[in-house]
Design a protein around this nucleic acid. Structure first.
Ligand code: MN
Ligand code: MN
Ligand code: ZN
Ligand code: ZN
Lengths: 145, 145
DNA sequence: CTTTAAATAGAAATCGTTTCTATTAAGAGA
DNA sequence: TCTCTTAATAGAAACGATTTCTATTTAAAG
């Protein structure tokens, strides 16, 4: 089963973040699509609704969501902030494929981090703490449009 | 054998970039250490030498170097620009481990991109064009210091 | 040498992001 | 339901990494 608005609310409470209308509006918006957003896009979409937020508030809300693991940061070459709410309920470690045309995000189950980590730690005597792995390209829908 | 100042100069010429004292100074600086630098660090190190550059010039020089593949961009969570001149002469595809303490960079030969790419393209019917893979942690020297 | 387009300096602008302060509201407890 | 405390929010302002702009210099081709 997928992540729902209720499981998101529970996650807010678990982390002692108040359940406010603005936070719910952001979550609802993110849940509705399988794509990543910039803070400005979130801000823009909520404008002229009954639960719009100021741009600094959107930034703060998304950063808090990221801090508690509710949303994931997406890496792009423009080095700006992008966030994605992954609907996979299993919190299992995974990465993402993003479409450079439509911003769609697909989870990738395969990750070879453990094997590479072990290799590096043996060979370099280093301590590997984290990794980035992300694929980019064109999704099926954008290819055939 | 390793990348040398001469092979770098050849690479500039191949790409019709003029061989200027400032560019040579930047290359020499980058070649001297196995670590990545921010543009400001490069700027700072060249200050008060006979070949210092203005900060905007350092940005431009590094971007040009990146465009011709002479330097590699390093990804960090502060979303700022960092560059590394990889001394591996073989231009073979590889990734990097970076030390979060001393900024040291080590090449990682293992990359499972091809297998993941094939998997994704089959499963999602997407076209995978590029990927990021980078490890971060603490290098041997920083662990034992 | 001359010539020309590329490279550079330095000031200024840009713009994504963060900070600050006053105001509002969630939610715990009475 | 009402109070109270503290977190959340708005909006203006600041911030700072990066880029742009224009005048000046210089690499290197001929
Ligand atoms: Mn992984
Ligand atoms: Mn790879
Ligand atoms: Zn797409
Ligand atoms: Zn180190």
């Amino acid at each position: 089963m997928d992540i729902s608005i209720d499981s998101c609310i529970a996650q807010l409470r678990r982390n002692t973040l108040k359940v406010t209308p603005r936070r719910l509006a952001v979550i609802t918006m993110l849940l509705a699509e399988r794509r990543y957003f910039s803070p400005y896009e979130v801000y823009e979409r909520l404008l002229n609704t009954d639960c719009s937020s100021g741009l600094p508030s959107v930034y703060r809300i998304l950063q808090e969501f990221s801090a508690i693991g509710l949303v994931t940061e997406i890496e792009r070459s423009d080095r700006q902030q992008y966030y994605f709410l992954c609907k996979e309920s299993s919190g299992a470690h995974h990465h993402h494929f993003i479409c450079r045309i439509c911003c769609r995000v697909e989870p990738i189950k395969k990750c070879f981090f453990d094997s590479v980590k072990k290799h590096i730690e043996t060979e370099l005597d280093a301590q590997v703490e984290s990794h980035i792995f992300q694929l980019e390209g064109i999704c099926a829908s954008c290819r055939n449009h």
